[in-house]
């Protein structure tokens, strides 16, 4: 127990887990590792099939829109920036600015999801969705490409939505004062989660959109 909060009444509560920012961050990092390995496993599957069906993956990837993918990448990067700035703002005691930046982060998350939904929708309109006749008529490699495309972007989008919900939660807690400059770790951890979502997209984007 080394943090300032615990030092005050060290003797009364020796070794009772209290507010320990370092432990919380460590716990969050360990959780992020599980997320990394979870996506990592899907990336392994992607890599294996990319190696097996290189040509078909190229064909599949060519049917995706690079401008849309790039736009969404920039949106997520920007949301990461606003998230980082929000933490920086709260560290300096600027609560209002911090909340404003969180709102921008959520807005970016929403924009990302809307664009993603249009992208999926366009594919659906072309008859490309899991189990569709059109898809099943394609070459096997292309079926694998689109199967992985929907799986990976789907799981990622789910994480974006969860991340946005968490940001709204931490926003409410900043408002109520439960998260503040002195007790900022909760916001730090949500920030870490959000950057992880961005991090995964950084790898998803070139692997899915740019193999053409």
């Amino acid at each position: 127990m080394s943090n300032a909060a615990a030092h005050d009444d060290h003797h009364a509560h020796y070794g009772v887990p209290g507010y320990d920012p370092v432990a919380w961050k460590m716990g969050m990092w360990l959780f992020l590792f599980t997320e990394l390995l979870l996506f990592g496993a899907v990336f392994i599957a992607y890599a294996v099939y990319l190696e097996t069906y290189t040509w078909h993956f190229t064909v599949g990837s060519a049917q995706l829109s690079i401008p849309i993918g790039t736009f969404n990448t920039l949106v997520l990067l920007t949301s990461s920036l606003t998230m980082a700035l929000s933490i920086a703002a709260l560290q300096r005691g600027k609560k209002e600015l911090s909340i404003k930046l969180l709102d921008m982060t959520v807005a970016c998350a929403g924009l990302f999801c809307v664009v993603k939904a249009f992208e999926w929708g366009a594919k659906f309109e072309h008859g490309i969705y899991p189990g569709s006749e059109h898809l099943l008529a394609m070459a096997r490699g292309e079926q694998m490409f689109f199967g992985l495309y929907f799986t990976m972007t789907g799981i990622h989008a789910l994480h974006v939505i969860i991340g946005a919900a968490l940001i709204l939660w931490v926003r409410a807690r900043i408002k109520s004062g439960a998260v503040s400059t002195e007790r900022i770790t909760f916001l730090d951890n949500i920030g870490l989660y959000w950057h992880l979502v961005d991090l995964i997209w950084i790898f998803l984007f070139p692997l899915i959109y740019l193999v053409a």
Partner: peptide, 24 residues
């Protein structure tokens, strides 16, 4: 050719290093 994917991954690694070191 097949270097495309390697270059793309190297750039992705560079980007993620920035994110991990600074943003995180």
């Amino acid at each position: 050719r097949h270097m495309t994917i390697i270059v793309a991954l190297l750039i992705a690694c560079a980007k993620s290093t920035l994110v991990v070191l600074w943003f995180m």
